[in-house]
Computed example of a mutant assay.
Amino acid sequence: MIKLIITDLDGSFLNNQGDYDRQLFAQVYELMLKQGVHFAACTGKQCDRVEELFGQYSEKIWIVGDSATTIKFNGEFIYRSFINNALGQRIIKTLEHASSDHVIIACTANGAIIKSNLPDRLKAKVRGSYANIIEVNDLHTITDDFIKITVYDETGQCPQTRTHLNDYEKEVYIVVSEATWIDITDFDVHKGNTINKLQQLLGVTYHETMAFGDGLNDVELLEQAQYSFAMRNAFEETKAVANFITGYNDDNAVMTTIEQMLALQAK
């Protein structure tokens, strides 16, 4: 019996415009509620941004946000992990030396911090994932610990940038989710391990979990669920670990699959 449904957002639950069919979700949510199924959004997006997206449902769903460094429910943080400031500053310095073309997003408990001299188009891109943004002249003035450090490179050079981070592999978790994004979190903190914490919290097993994903950072997520679905638009590596393949994110495939599975479960 399915008791927990987890979905990645970008490329999975959300369409290519970064939105979703709210009327359909209202129907799906009622189905989940009726069967006592928990719903979690598992994403690199800031929790505040997820709350914006889900509106009236934001306090009714589990949010595994900020690249799985955070679990939030009903407006309260249940779990958070941090990279200590000194280590984070070393990583930022390495990233600055690696390239001057990418965007470094340094996330702390206060918000997502970016440099104030970014072009407007790049600030707009950051706002797609972060609701609470702080602009500074110098990232090295940050004194708080980091929830995560993210790189956005519109030229798609993140796989190359990743090679500059090899020396940090025993100190932090690093994933190139796609050619334009790198996420850096505390050591061994990724979607799989954080979802395992959520499963323990809810008393839900692997056999009672359904998950959806498309990116390379969703591999560990899908490994936590017996009912693991890769999107048709997913990376081949992600499809390889999934037990099932569903439709495209642009066709509401996550929600229609949930409807179909819960209809079967209700019989």
Score class of each variant (00 low, 15 high):
K170I: 06
K170R: 13
V204K: 05
D183C: 11
G44Y: 02
Q260G: 14
D145C: 12
Y130T: 06
G247A: 08
D251Y: 14
L165W: 06
A266H: 02
K191N: 03
K3A: 03
I105Y: 04
D66M: 15
M231I: 07
V50H: 08
V151Y: 08
Q199I: 09
D167Y: 15
V50F: 10
V176T: 11
K267A: 02
W62T: 11
E135R: 09
A230P: 04
F39R: 07
H97C: 03
L165C: 02
T108M: 08
R162Y: 10
Q23K: 15
A263W: 00
I134H: 14
A242K: 00
D101P: 03
Q23F: 07
I5N: 03
K72E: 03
T194F: 10
I113H: 13
D183G: 05
A179I: 03
E154G: 14
V172Y: 04
T238L: 07
R232Y: 03
K170Y: 09
H140G: 15
K191W: 11
Y79H: 06
H164D: 07
T209E: 06
L4T: 04
Q35C: 01
M210P: 00
L4D: 01
A98K: 15
L24N: 09
G203E: 07
A124E: 08
V219N: 10
F54S: 06
A211C: 04
H207R: 08
I149H: 09
D251H: 12
I61G: 01
G65H: 12
D214A: 09
D251P: 07
L139M: 11
D251S: 10
F82P: 08
Q265M: 00
Q157W: 02
G213W: 15
Q200A: 14
A131E: 13
K148H: 11
L9N: 01
V172C: 03
I182L: 15
E52Y: 01
V103H: 13
D186K: 13
Q23R: 14
N217M: 07
N233M: 01
T141I: 05
Q17Y: 08
W181L: 11
D188M: 14
I71T: 04
T43V: 15
T246F: 04
C158T: 13
K148I: 05
Q265A: 00
I91P: 07
A26E: 14
N252H: 08
L33S: 09
D19T: 13
T194G: 09
H207Y: 06
D10E: 11
T194V: 14
K191Q: 04
A225T: 07
C158A: 13
Q160S: 01
H38W: 05
F235P: 09
N110Y: 09
Y130H: 11
D144I: 00
M261F: 01
D48K: 15
G18N: 05
L24F: 05
T163V: 10
A26T: 15
G213K: 11
Q200T: 13
H38I: 05
A230C: 10
N196G: 08
S99T: 15
T194Q: 10
W62M: 11
Y227M: 01
L222H: 13
E30Q: 12
A263E: 00
H38A: 10
I147H: 00
V37H: 00
N243Q: 09
T69L: 10
N233C: 13
N243D: 06
F235L: 12
